[in-house]
């Protein structure tokens, strides 16, 4: 029985002197052409933090869900599989052990038989074609933490979300702000519920969202499909922030909602929930 460096059943610990922040890199396939192969694509990671990849999702949204394939590469350009994987094998797929991408490196991939998921109404189309790489940014320094001793209680910020604007109206996004009052708030998950009885059109929720931390830094490289954020997504499983996100008292949860709806698909009436824990001073 070999001696292990650390036991897999022990809680995961961020290395000393570093702190983690959830991060999603998404590749927008909107500009690609259906039916062709797109090779040597690259998604550049941010230059100020190491990216740690833990989950890949959405292959079936950018290539043909049945016959399409994807070959992923690490930051050195080495393939992560012997041959391209069928889209069906890259659906909410965990990366174990986590894969590290140094600051300013790139996530490489080839797409075989591109087929963009779309929402079509008459002559108009919006694309829901994003390949998502979920994980976290690891930065050097001390993590943001509460300035007081605390005990935690579950808490949910609920926000009514009425989307009554279309993709084609400019601007097609709106900014939302949730003030964090009274106590520090640790965000753990995001949920979205349909508040009216209407069915959700298309393969998922017709929204994209960008989320910001308490310093107004975005947590994704582009606004990403709402289903990638949602813990209760019916399209993808196992969604969660890879690390908790702290909003100190007096800060704000900022988010930007982009509508992908077309004529006849609004209004969309949702309840958006920021789920986590409030920290009570002791």
């Amino acid at each position: 029985m070999p001696a292990y460096i650390c036991q897999p059943d022990q809680p995961y610990q961020t290395p000393g002197g570093c702190w983690d922040q959830p991060r999603i890199y998404a590749y927008d396939a909107d500009a690609l052409i259906d039916g062709v192969d797109q090779l040597n694509l690259d998604l550049e990671t941010q230059a100020d933090a190491e990216f740690i990849l833990r989950k890949i999702d959405g292959a079936g949204l950018v290539v043909n869900p049945v016959t399409g394939r994807i070959l992923l590469r690490d930051w050195l350009g080495q393939p992560t599989s012997r041959r391209p994987l069928s889209a069906g094998l890259l659906r909410s797929t965990a990366v174990l052990p986590e894969r590290h991408f140094p600051p300013g490196s790139g996530i490489g991939f080839d797409l075989y038989t591109v087929l963009r998921a779309s929402n079509v109404v008459g002559p108009n189309t919006t694309f829901l074609s994003q390949l998502a790489f979920q994980g976290l940014h690891r930065r050097k320094g001390q993590p943001l933490d509460s300035r007081y001793g605390y005990r935690q209680k579950p808490f949910i910020y609920t926000v009514p979300l009425l989307v009554n604007w279309l993709w084609l109206t400019l601007p097609n996004y709106q900014l939302g702000i949730v003030p964090v009052n009274n106590r520090d708030f640790e965000l753990n998950a995001i949920r979205l519920y349909v508040a009216n009885s209407g069915a959700i059109p298309g393969p998922g929720v017709l929204l994209k969202m960008q989320l910001y931390d308490c310093f107004e830094r975005p947590l994704a490289n582009v606004p990403i499909l709402m289903d990638y954020w949602m813990e209760n997504s019916e399209v993808f499983v196992g969604n969660a922030l890879c690390a908790p996100l702290l909003y100190p008292v007096g800060s704000e949860i900022r988010y930007q909602i982009t509508s992908l709806a077309l004529a006849g698909q609004v209004p969309l009436n949702y309840e958006l929930e920021f789920v986590g824990m409030q920290r009570f001073p002791v």
């Binding site: 001696a3 969660a240 986590g276």
Partner: peptide, 21 residues
Amino acid sequence: MTSNVFAPPAMAGLNDANPPG
């Protein structure tokens, strides 16, 4: 605050199980 208790283990992070060397 290094682990999200709401996240599945693979998302919250798992330690390496590689033997020394």
